[in-house]
Design a protein around this nucleic acid. Structure first.
Length: 194
DNA sequence: AACAAGATTAACT
DNA sequence: GTTAATCTTGTTT
């Protein structure tokens, strides 16, 4: 079993290869990012407990969804200590069940790209903001260890303008469903990084 | 009340 | 490589 009370940085590499099921669709995770609670300047938890971040500060095993650029619903697995605001962002995966449903949601998209990138991942599974706050391992929202995770690599998080040297993005080596790395356009040269 | 920014994506040139 | 699409939240008038 996956121990969702682990810190995000410890849990994230274990999630690569894990199987996430919801609404008849099962995705094997190939890329995730750790966000280490209120002390992580790149995390949403950094702003503190707000209406927006309420679910992020819920108990481990909560699904925290946020809307990016008004278009994309991205999902996180809340983990670590209860109320600590730590979470693992689900960035990409391979659809292993419910392919027909996902193809219908994303017509014309190659199978390897169906859940590549956090926004695409959310769309493939069919998440919206209304799904935020649901609990894993309850009802049909499941998260279990995968059979074959392969080699897991680590590197800097995508699109993050602070603490961008922390290698807290984890992905399955050589997997075609992993998204391309892009540095944030807002990284300040010479700013204090940690 | 107005505005800027964002853990993005796809469609352009 | 550049840019439009689109909306919630926090910040500034």
């Amino acid at each position: 079993m996956l121990d969702l009370t682990l810190p995000a940085v410890d849990l994230a590499p274990l999630l690569v290869g894990a199987l996430l099921s919801d609404g008849g669709v099962t995705v094997q995770l190939t890329e995730v990012e750790a966000y280490a609670g209120a002390d992580d300047p790149a995390a949403h938890a950094f702003i503190g407990l707000r209406p927006r971040t309420r679910d992020l500060f819920g108990p481990p095993g909560t699904l925290y969804c946020y809307l990016s650029h008004g278009l994309h619903t991205c999902g996180n697995v809340v983990c670590g200590a209860d109320g600590g605001g730590s979470a693992v962002l689900l960035r990409a995966g391979r659809v292993v069940a419910g392919l027909d449903v996902v193809r219908e949601r994303r017509p014309g998209v190659p199978d390897a790209a169906l859940a590549r990138g956090p926004g695409n991942f959310g769309r493939a599974i069919g998440w919206t903001l209304a799904d935020s706050g649901r609990r894993f391992a309850v009802g049909n929202l499941a998260l279990v260890p995968g059979p074959d995770s392969g080699t897991v690599l680590a590197g800097p998080r995508v699109g993050v303008s602070v603490a961008h040297r922390r290698p807290w993005r984890f992905w399955a080596e050589g997997d075609p469903t992993v998204s391309a790395y892009r540095a944030s356009p807002r990284i300040q040269p010479g700013h204090l990084d940690w």
